[in-house]
């Protein structure tokens, strides 16, 4: 079993789990799912530099280094995704505190009409 298979399958599993949770009906699991998708995307971007062991991009006398560019891109992506998670959590929390309901879907129009009558 190769490392490539492990990483690729981890990305796949993270995506599938994230996607399943994103399709749930309450805010908290959806946020969890988005976090899993974030991991999947970050690892995927990182892996676009291919997998290299023991060759960090710190200049020494070494002959080979791993690709530094995806690392730089993913580093900012990790920090930004924290900011975005925080915003989404805040919006979800605000909706829950304001409406006492943490469903992600708007009620269907028919039920809305029933509620108002």
């Amino acid at each position: 079993m190769g490392l490539e298979l492990l990483v690729a399958s981890a990305i796949g599993i993270l995506t599938a789990a994230g996607m399943y949770l994103v399709l749930r009906l309450r805010t908290f699991p959806v946020i969890m799912g988005m976090s899993l998708l974030t991991y999947a995307v970050n690892v995927f971007l990182f892996a676009s530099g291919r997998l290299t062991i023991g060759a960090p991009p710190i200049l020494t006398d070494a002959a080979r280094y791993t690709d530094p560019l995806p690392q730089a891109l993913v580093l900012t992506a990790i920090v930004i995704s924290f900011g975005m998670t925080a915003v989404v959590v805040m919006i979800g929390l605000g909706a829950y505190l304001g409406g006492d309901d943490d469903r992600v879907n708007d009620p269907a129009p028919e039920t809305e009409a029933e509620e108002t009558t």
Binding site: I13, F44, R50
Partner: peptide
Amino acid sequence: RDAVVAIAAGLATFALSYHFLL
């Protein structure tokens, strides 16, 4: 239904990652 959608997405990303990692 959600599981089918999720697994399809997962398989797709797995296949994509695995192919370009090699």
